[in-house]
Design a protein around this nucleic acid. Structure first.
Length: 636
RNA sequence: GGCGGUGUAGCUCAGCUGGUCAGAGCGAGCGGCUCAUAACCGCUAGGUCAUGGGUUCAAGUCCCGUCACCGCCA
């Protein structure tokens, strides 16, 4: 029998839950619920990663023990998961004894395979941090990124893992038929990284007390990623003989699905280190690592709607966690990045949840109650145009959920809603009200509509675990089904009570909501300073140039056309400075030019650059080198 | 610099192995209906499928070049 094991990354407790954590966990939960409905044995694991430098330091800053800090954050995670209806079967913390036992067992296997050895490691060391940094992490000038103090070259002894030995096997794995790394872009990235050559990996740390003791290497702790990644099997009981039934069922069993959901920031750890560790230990690999994208704030949209921000908290408190679950799953093409905005949420909510779903239920329930004394229609209908649609929608939904491709699965369900509304309008059931001779016809029409809605609500059970049962109750089906078999046409009970309809998704007044969404905060009064990186700054090419010729632009009060010498080229530039600087005063003068500015036409003249000037009350004061320098000299 | 990816209607995106592929949803306009949460239904998009070549009877769909943007390179 196929088993289904799904994991989220274990979340690092230096950070409170945010949209990224929530998204991954909702995805995992939706999959777990779907596969349970499909009748498969499911195990859904999430948890927290609690060791390491950052935790140690953050705890020290707050004057508490690392474990106390972790406890605090873990409590918060539990709260949030409860709020979102997360149905995880287990929650692993890397500070638990069961985890340590598993990690030790894994490391024993790595020793046994001959893949661990001790070697000297030289690196950039910051004494106050007691940490080695890679060159990339350092600030310019070899400064520690935390203390901004010079780091020094130091040597330490480490346990190394022979990652290099697994290069070929990893490449084979990426290319295997099952496509273990998805989507393909991500597989390409990892493949090219691995193909460029792997260095052995340091898997122990000295000077870090807040970690698991490294077996056989006193004074050292286990590298946080070796520690953390192991959770996927330690939580199942790996390394604890007699208590490892779940490990046997969900990891070691033939043909079981072992799915890791990860963000693209931890691709390498999950697609290089982790499988290599498992290969070395002689253990089964995950069947799929699914790498999803990030939620971004769309700068353009934010600017347009004057500063609407990502406010999942407010969305949840006002519209419920399931509305957010729906939005996240519907809006992101699984695997790609997507942007998150209040406007996007409101649009999606109104058009999909309020208009299509909520309103369709509302109109059907109202009609049925009126026609049949508060009950569902007495007569069913086994032959009508909605049936083939419902069947193809159910098939498409199941396929998309398997893939998984949530946006497509939901799109399919909504296709059925659209067809249902169309069907209702075509049949005009309201014209049949109060005509006894049309009662049977009316019953069939309304029954069909309600039945279609029942199928949609059934498909929504994994996505909106709190709301979907309420949708079903609203159409007279108070017991939510426990199997995907309920997606088949024909399940709606006849002549059962229909509760009075109440809007499950009240429409959002978009204008009011967005106006309300204006940051009460500082945005306007104290504009935040937008910093640019040195790289961004250097995108602007500033060069010294000498004005060779200048003539006022006819019919313009400010513009002057300049011919400037940039050393290796001569350009035409238009500048709005002629009121302060008569043309003849400009000739021979050196100016600073933005040399890579997009050309622009001013009064019909193409300006190939911009002359820099300070502006006092709108009046320009030209910048110029303190003494003459060669034309074309870069300014920085 | 190397490798990979993207560029299709105002917006978000579908278009696998070349031949009803020029599409969907949202938004906008017009019309209809009134059971329903000012909802629902119908019609309306004249987009050089970034761009220049090429292969082919036939190319968003394959090949080469160019431009723009993005990701990865411990």
């Amino acid at each position: 029998m196929r088993t289904f094991y799904v994991t989220t990354p274990i979340y690092y407790v230096n950070d409170l839950p945010h949209i990224g954590h929530i998204y991954t966990t909702i995805v995992a939960d939706t999959l777990a619920r779907f596969h349970r409905l499909a009748g498969e044995p499911v195990h859904f694991l999430t948890g927290t990663d609690e060791h390491g430098q950052k935790i140690e330091r953050a705890a020290a800053e707050q004057g508490i023990a690392p474990i106390a800090l972790a406890d605090r954050v873990v409590a918060r995670f539990h709260e949030v998961w409860q709020q979102f209806g997360i149905s995880n079967d287990d929650f692993i913390r890397t500070t638990e004894p069961r985890h340590r036992l598993g990690v030790e067992a894994l490391i024993q296997r790595l020793y046994a395979s001959g893949d661990l050895y001790v070697d000297k490691h030289t690196g950039w060391y910051c004494t106050p941090c007691e940490t080695f940094y890679t060159e990339k992490e350092l600030l310019p000038g070899n400064l520690c990124p935390i203390h901004e103090l010079p780091v020094e070259r130091q040597e330490e002894e480490n346990v190394f893992f022979r990652l290099s030995r697994y290069q070929d096997r990893l490449l084979e794995w990426y290319d295997s038929q099952t496509e273990p790394v998805r989507p393909r872009v991500r597989a390409n990235e990892v493949r090219s990284f691995v193909a460029s050559g792997l260095r052995d990996l340091s898997v122990s740390r000295s000077n870090l007390a807040w970690g698991l003791p490294f077996p056989g290497h006193p004074g050292h702790t286990v590298y946080v990623w070796l520690d953390a990644l192991s959770n996927y099997i330690t939580a199942l009981g790996f390394g604890r003989p007699g208590e490892d039934q779940r490990y046997q069922d969900f990891w070691a069993s033939e043909g079981g699905v072992r799915l890791h959901l990860v963000g693209k920031d931890i691709l390498r750890h999950h697609c290089v280190y982790w499988p290599a560790f498992l290969m070395a230990a002689g253990l089964p690999l995950p069947s799929t690592v699914f790498v999803h994208g990030f939620w971004l704030r769309d700068a353009k949209k934010i600017a347009k709607s004057t500063g609407s921000a990502v406010r999942p908290d407010e969305i949840v408190s006002r519209f419920g966690p399931d509305s957010l679950r729906y939005f996240l799953l519907r809006e992101m093409v699984f695997g790609q990045d997507a942007s998150f905005s209040d406007e996007g949420f409101v649009d999606r909510y109104n058009s999909d949840l309020a208009n299509d779903l909520g309103n369709t239920i509302s109109r059907l329930v109202t009609l049925s109650r009126r026609a049949f004394g508060g009950l569902t229609p007495p007569e069913s209908c086994a032959d009508n145009p909605l049936i083939p649609v419902a069947e193809s929608v159910a098939a498409e939904y199941r396929q998309a959920m398997e893939e998984p491709a949530f946006s497509r699965a939901l799109e399919a369900l909504w296709k059925l809603l659209a067809e249902t509304n169309q069907y209702i309008v075509e049949r005009q059931p309201w014209t049949l009200l109060g005509k006894p001779e049309e009662a049977r016809r009316l019953s069939r029409i309304l029954w069909n509509g309600l039945e279609a809605v029942r199928i949609v609500a059934t498909g929504l059970l994994p996505v909106m675990p709190a709301i979907a049962p309420r949708l079903l109750a609203a159409i007279g089906q108070p017991e939510p089904p426990s199997s995907l078999a309920a997606l088949a046409w024909g399940g709606l009970a006849n002549s059962v009570p229909l509760p009075e309809p109440s809007p499950l998704f009240p429409r959002i007044d978009k204008a009011a909501y967005l106006a309300d969404a204006q940051p009460t905060a500082p945005a306007k009064s104290a504009p935040e300073k937008k910093m640019v990186s040195i790289d961004e700054f250097f995108k602007t090419e500033l060069k010294v140039a000498t004005v060779q010729a200048a003539e006022a632009v006819p019919k313009s009060s400010k513009l002057v056309k300049l011919t400037v010498d940039l050393g290796d080229e001569v350009r035409t530039v238009v500048a709005g400075i002629v009121q302060q600087y008569p043309p003849e005063s400009l000739v021979g003068r050196q100016v600073i030019l933005v040399a890579n500015l997009e050309p622009a036409k001013l009064m019909g003249i193409e300006s190939q650059g911009m002359v820099l000037a300070a502006s006092i009350d709108g009046l320009p004061v030209l910048l110029q080198p303190e003494r003459a320098v060669p034309n074309g000299t870069r300014v920085k």
